[in-house]
């Protein structure tokens, strides 16, 4: 079934792109390999304006309050948060590992920068993910062209600016083809 296009409401502030929120959670007690990633990932909904974003986000649980093995994904409308999507298959991501307690603030700063077009890399951004794990949390931002070093450099510099991270934070760039080979 074709999805209805989301449009800004009257008087609302449109975003440069429409976005979709997704959520995934690994069922406890079963190894990941027996489950299809696509089956576990659920669409929460889409938005086209600043005000529509807040209506979703204000009702969502903060990443720091999630338990277990869970992820929030925020991707441009039409891009699935998976390596196999056409927009992602030549791409890569910046990964930042966070000690417990930082995820909620960092995730909010990351997605506000993405929605507000702070990265200045044209059409390159695909989406962002926050992954809640047992001992640490991980945030990442995905872009289309892993081989484009000017773009990945600019994304890294913007991340440093908007996330206000401790100076010793390690940032790692990983291409999706690497992730497929070595998950």
């Amino acid at each position: 079934a074709k999805k209805k296009m989301v449009v800004p409401g009257p008087g609302e502030h449109p975003l440069q792109y429409n976005y979709t929120f997704w959520y995934s959670r690994r069922t406890p007690g079963r190894p990941a390999s027996t489950q299809s990633y696509e089956q576990n990932i659920k669409q929460i909904g889409g938005f086209a304006s600043v005000e529509q974003f807040w209506r979703f986000y204000s009702h969502m649980i903060r990443p720091g309050d999630l338990t277990g093995h869970s992820d929030f994904h925020l991707f441009k409308e039409g891009i699935k948060p998976m390596w196999e999507d056409d927009a992602n298959k030549m791409g890569g991501k910046w990964i930042i590992r966070l000690r417990k307690g930082l995820a909620s603030r960092c995730w909010e700063n990351l997605i506000l920068a993405m929605l507000g077009e702070q990265f200045m890399v044209g059409e390159e951004i695909c989406g962002a993910v926050v992954s809640v794990r047992f001992q640490e949390d991980i945030i990442s931002i995905w872009n289309k062209t892993a081989s484009d070093q000017a773009t990945s450099g600019r994304i890294r510099d913007t991340l440093r600016r908007v996330l206000n991270l401790p100076p010793n934070t390690i940032m790692e760039y990983k291409t999706h083809t690497d992730s497929i080979k070595r998950p």
């Binding site: 409401g9 008087g11 609302e12 502030h13 449109p14 975003l15 440069q16 600043v50 005000e51 529509q52 974003f53 807040w54 209506r55 204000s58 700063n109 506000l112 920068a113 929605l115 507000g116 077009e117 702070q118 908007v162």
Partner: peptide, 21 residues
């Protein structure tokens, strides 16, 4: 064309606007 750019403060200020409720 022109890009729609918003800084963090602008976005946060829209959080409690009546339209967003």
């Amino acid at each position: 064309g022109t890009r729609i750019i918003y800084d963090r403060k602008f976005l946060l200020d829209r959080r409690n606007s009546p339209i967003a409720q």
